[in-house]
Design a protein around this nucleic acid. Structure first.
Lengths: 213, 213
DNA sequence: GTTGTTACTTACTAACTAGTAAGTAACTTC
DNA sequence: GAAGTTACTTACTAGTTAGTAAGTAACAAC
């Protein structure tokens, strides 16, 4: 639809203002989804938070589903840390020559998620709403979950003898998801990275995982 | 309000019919909460499923919040399996003299939950909606979660040297929660007990947990 | 300086929301 | 058989929902 014409300086300035407004809308939507779920949230509530009319919100996102798409785009596809981690082991990377370790990767994820509780909460909420086949995100999250459990087969995880790397990741990420749910529900009570390091002692107990953590 | 008079035979019969109707309402509500969340579900939708009017539903539950209370009462407080498991070790119990084992308890939970996916899904949905402080269930689920992580201190779990029993339970239940979320989202793809037995090999690896499983 | 685009607003609609009030038919109690 | 009680229904209200249509003021392009 949009012919890709090079924007002039002025056009850039205008679209930057529009971008900022869209950011406000998406941010408000995230807060409201976290509080009430996507189904329980209304465009009017988003508009009220941003300080424009509900029709003004629709001007930007077209429909409620469009808002969801925008939220997913902005917040989710930003975090693809497995590739980030693995790239450290590629030729020229900081960890070249070494092998990737599951507990190390998990710590990285935890550290990153610890800085964005709002995003973690959004993931929990939308992922849960997507359990139902009638959710517009059902397929999206199922594919995502499959991708997480069955990671690229060419990853050469360094694990102890007798440990199935795929199962170890699958289990660790399940535990991480469970812990994250507790954490975002009561962030004052739970120190997420500290709790995770205790989980590490269970998931990757030390005599067995010595040298693989 | 209700004076607790002994019901006659006829009154019993009547209240049994009412009980059945209430069951239908709660069952429909559970299906709808699973599909759209409590906030996304309407009393009208419940009424349509049951085949009565929306005012008819309100006759039974008083308000939407009343319906939630009814759902919680019926479905949740039914499953308190830790005490059930531990009672097997009390004097006269089947396991008297032995010590409770965490992996064994987990298998029990998994086996039970495997028979009630609808209830598992309900738990995931309400627990997630309860993350928000504005959920009427926020405190209820937080207390529940605290109770699960900090179990009765008099439980004498049998665990390997160097393993913290409380952390092991906490981590195992987090992993179970994560796996359950995947399972109820695509039950045809995932064999929950089979997946759990693989998780067991990660959470309770065999050289270490030999004799404690 | 006209022409177009952007970023909205007002005004509206049709459907739906939880909840209330006032019935009513069937049945129970006494 | 009169007086409740139960299990609903119809009818209604006031507020909210997503979405549409038709503006309009500000600015940009040429």
């Amino acid at each position: 639809m949009d012919t890709q014409k090079t924007p002039t300086h002025a056009a850039k300035k205008r679209s930057a203002a529009a971008q900022e407004r869209l950011d406000q809308i998406v941010s408000a939507a995230v807060r409201l989804i976290n509080a009430r779920g996507f189904n329980g949230m209304s465009l009017q509530a988003v508009a009220d938070e941003v300080g424009i009319t509900q029709a003004g919100v629709l001007h930007y996102v077209g429909s409620k589903h469009g808002l969801l798409v925008e939220v997913i785009r902005r917040y989710y596809d930003r975090s693809s840390t497995l590739d980030d981690y693995l790239s450290l082991f590629h030729p020229g990377g900081a960890f070249e020559g070494q092998s990737p370790k599951i507990p190390e990767y998990c710590r990285l994820l935890v550290a990153e998620n610890n800085n964005q509780p709002e995003l973690v909460m959004l993931f929990q909420m939308l992922n849960t709403e997507a359990m139902s086949t009638e959710s517009p995100l059902h397929e999206y999250f199922n594919d995502r979950s499959r991708g997480v459990i069955e990671p690229e087969p060419d990853v050469n995880w360094s694990v102890p003898e007798g440990i199935d790397a795929t199962e170890a990741i699958s289990c660790a990420l399940a535990a991480m998801y469970g812990l994250e749910g507790r954490w975002v529900a009561r962030p004052d009570e739970i120190d997420y990275p500290a709790e995770w390091s205790k989980f590490e002692d269970i998931l990757f107990p030390l005599p067995l995982w010595e040298g693989y953590r």
